[in-house]
Write a protein that binds this DNA or RNA. Sequence first.
DNA 1: ACAATAGGCAAGCATCCACTTGCCTATCAA
DNA 2: TTGATAGGCAAGTGGATGCTTGCCTATTGT
Lengths: 104, 104
Amino acid sequence: MLAYCGVVGEDVFKALADPTRRRILDELVERDGQTLFEICTRLVTKHNLGLSRQAISQHLAVLESAGLIRTRRQGRYKFHDLETEPLERIVTRWLRPDTPEENS
Amino acid sequence: MLAYCGVVGEDVFKALADPTRRRILDELVERDGQTLFEICTRLVTKHNLGLSRQAISQHLAVLESAGLIRTRRQGRYKFHDLETEPLERIVTRWLRPDTPEENS
DNA sequence: ACAATAGGCAAGCATCCACTTGCCTATCAA
DNA sequence: TTGATAGGCAAGTGGATGCTTGCCTATTGT
């Protein structure tokens, strides 16, 4: 459960800085729990993004280390689930500055 | 007033990707309408950020082109005002995906 | 066992980005 | 007018970053 009390890794902002990673989040909002290959094919077909499998894999790694997605293995499949908790924090930093800010 | 209907420039995310620029936003939340030199000195004294004036100036340019700050000249002074409107959009993209998304 | 599928690791590369340095313009005070 | 203050422009540089390529491991089906 990992209560994540307080600090938001600055990785969250860097993770969101890339348009492809934002597309991936869009994709997971629309359909959660996809595998790497599913995300690959959907990015190619729907958004005409001609990216290699490794490119997407690296993006997913960035998103995971930023806490924006969570993964679970199942046999040879690895499913990716969206994690919206870090998103709720990052903007309250400037919109509701009354709350104690321990961000970086 | 510039109703900004629809699209959020992807610059907003890139603008937020840098920790120094986030510090600047913090600084403007705390005290709006500062000049370049004020921001410089406060970043140095309060956060021990040893950055040149040009560095801050360039950061301010990025924030402005992202729509996160607005500037007004007055004599030889240039005041920087926070603009929170783009911030409200970026997170609703994934938190409230019901709204029509025209983001990039 | 063997091939196919799903994914991982690591080196290499080209581009981008933050920062510096040096010099220039504009406004104000004496 | 002269000097000081506030800010701008542009070239250069080192490090980060996104992407590719090549090869490797693990699981599944026949």
